Simulated assay, not measured.
Amino acid sequence: MSEADTSSATKRRPDWAALIIAVFLLAVAAVVFWDASHLKTIAQYDRIGPSTVPKVVAFGLFCLGIWTAFEAWRGDFPEREQQEVAPVIWIVAGLAGQMLLLRIAGFSIATGVLFALTARGFGKRQIWISLPIGIVLSFVVWAIFSQLLQLTLPAGPLEHLFF
């Protein structure tokens, strides 16, 4: 075997990560279609009802899953860059922190923590600057949604201090 034959043989291997993504797309399509098929029809004579759009979305996901599986099997996906794990951990930590603090500290502080840790994940190293900025921006969002639009968001000590 020549070097060209060896490189083409290794290049044509299935992309296993893309195959896993294809299986995930097919599973989501199946769940969406199953859920849409259990929606009650309002009128029997009309072909378009509440399940029409979810079924179209399921069909689209199914087609994307098949296409992804086909391309993965052929090995046609471009080479991916090395993944950086640390930013993902910072962002997931921010989401976990928000979920844990939401009822205790309220929307502004919890979402400010999410903002600061996400900013850290994107490369902003000064958390002591990002945290107050995130809390202030989150408080403004809370005030707009809670006070002006009359929507219910979790209030904590900061929100009770002003309202």
Rank of each mutant, 00 (worst) to 15 (best):
M1I: 11
A4R: 04
D5G: 09
D5I: 12
D5C: 12
T6R: 09
S7M: 12
S7I: 10
S8N: 05
S8Y: 08
P14Y: 07
P14T: 08
P14N: 04
D15F: 12
W16P: 00
L19A: 06
I20E: 05
A22L: 03
A22W: 01
V23I: 15
F24N: 05
A27G: 06
A29N: 05
A30Y: 13
V31T: 06
F33C: 06
W34T: 00
D35G: 04
A36D: 03
S37T: 13
L39M: 12
I42W: 11
I42P: 00
I42D: 10
Q44R: 13
Q44H: 02
Y45I: 11
D46C: 00
R47A: 15
G49A: 12
G49S: 09
G49T: 04
S51H: 15
S51A: 14
T52R: 03
T52L: 10
V53F: 15
P54N: 09
P54A: 06
P54L: 05
K55H: 07
K55P: 07
V57D: 04
F59R: 03
G60D: 02
G60P: 06
L61T: 01
F62E: 03
C63E: 01
C63K: 06
I66F: 07
I66N: 09
W67I: 13
A69P: 11
E71I: 01
A72F: 11
W73Q: 04
W73R: 04
W73C: 00
G75Y: 11
P78T: 10
P78G: 09
P78D: 02
E81A: 15
Q82N: 02
Q83M: 06
V88R: 07
I89Q: 04
A93H: 02
L95N: 05
A96S: 09
G97R: 10
M99Y: 09
L100A: 15
L100N: 14
L101A: 15
L102Y: 12
L102W: 07
R103P: 07
I104Q: 12
G106C: 01
F107V: 03
F107E: 00
S108K: 13
A110T: 13
A110E: 08
G112R: 08
F115G: 01
F115Y: 13
R120L: 12
G121C: 15
F122M: 14
F122G: 12
G123C: 08
G123H: 14
G123I: 13
K124Q: 12
K124Y: 15
I127H: 01
I129L: 15
I129D: 02
S130M: 11
L131C: 02
L131T: 03
L131A: 08
P132H: 13
I133D: 06
I133N: 05
I135F: 09
V136D: 09
S138M: 09
S138Y: 04
F139T: 09
V140Q: 07
V140L: 15
V140N: 00
V140P: 10
W142C: 10
A143K: 05
F145D: 03
L148P: 00
L148Q: 07
Q150V: 12
Q150N: 12
Q150E: 14
P154M: 01
P154L: 11
P154G: 08
P154R: 09
A155M: 03
P157V: 07
P157D: 02
P157Q: 05
H160I: 05
L161F: 14
F162N: 08
F163P: 07
